[in-house]
Every structure is written in structure tokens, then in C-alpha cells.
């Protein structure tokens, strides 16, 4: 275990505080630059495991367009993005699809589902 310094830009709000953190692994020893308390939770999570919403597209058959936009229905570990993308490359949906339909449930053991972010009717 070593004490490290890291730099973060908080994205909780549009201000985007530039924060310097001294930490031992994911334990915050001190931090400066934040203008409110919300940054601490953000930085703690960033040190522990950066979480993000993934938005992408998957292929779809029988619709007006060849791909349909999707997202995770909650934040997932950022480091798993390449794995999620590989898995989503392999699937193909069949129209019609409704907005928020679950396309893949519990993807890669993240507890998050992949949901469609628009409706796509079947093309006549």
C-alpha cells in the first residue's frame, strides 16, 4: 500500500471542480479543489471503480434502420466497456422493439440490463 496523488475533474455538476486527492488505494486521505460535498462521493467511487452509463447501438432486422440505439439501465464499471461492446456486437434484434424494452438482461454479470432507447416498428 502506497500513498498516491491523483487528479480528478468532478462531473457531478457543470462547474467541473479540479480536485487533487491524496489517497491510499481507494481511501481518501485528503482532497482539495472541490466547491461542495458531492465531489467526495464522486472521487471515492472513481478511486474504487469508475462507473458509467454505456450508450451504443445494436443491429436490428426488419426495421427501417439497420441499428437501434441502446444503453445500460444503470452505471456499469467503465473497465467492462470493451467486454460489453464485444457481446453487443454479436446480437441482432428483430423489429418491432419498444423504447425501454430489455434487450440483454444482467449483461456480463453487472446487474444492469441493456435497454432500447427508442421504438422501432416493423417495416412493412
Amino acid at each position: 500500500m502506497t500513498v498516491q496523488k491523483s487528479h480528478f475533474v468532478c462531473v457531478v455538476c457543470p462547474i467541473g471542480c479540479e480536485i487533487d486527492v491524496v489517497h491510499e488505494d481507494s481511501e481518501i486521505l485528503s482532497m482539495e479543489g472541490q466547491k461542495c460535498d458531492k465531489s467526495e462521493e464522486y472521487v471515492r467511487q472513481e478511486l474504487l471503480e469508475p462507473m458509467r452509463i454505456l450508450t451504443t447501438t445494436v443491429r436490428i432486422r426488419g426495421a427501417r434502420w439497420p441499428v437501434i440505439p441502446v444503453r445500460t439501465d444503470g452505471p456499469v464499471p467503465k473497465r467492462l466497456f470493451p467486454r460489453l461492446m464485444r457481446q453487443l456486437k454479436r446480437i441482432e434484434l428483430q423489429a418491432p422493439v419498444d423504447m425501454l424494452d430489455v434487450v440483454v438482461s444482467d449483461i456480463a454479470g453487472t446487474d444492469a440490463n441493456i435497454v432500447a432507447t427508442r421504438s422501432m416498428p416493423q417495416e412493412r
Partner: peptide, 12 residues
């Protein structure tokens, strides 16, 4: 662009 987009699209 917006700061949060620099962080989430480039830095990430």
C-alpha cells in the same frame, strides 16, 4: 465543448 464532455469522452 462542455467540461463534462472533455472528461467523459476524452479523459475516460
Amino acid at each position: 465543448g462542455l467540461k463534462r464532455n472533455i472528461v467523459q469522452c476524452l479523459d475516460d
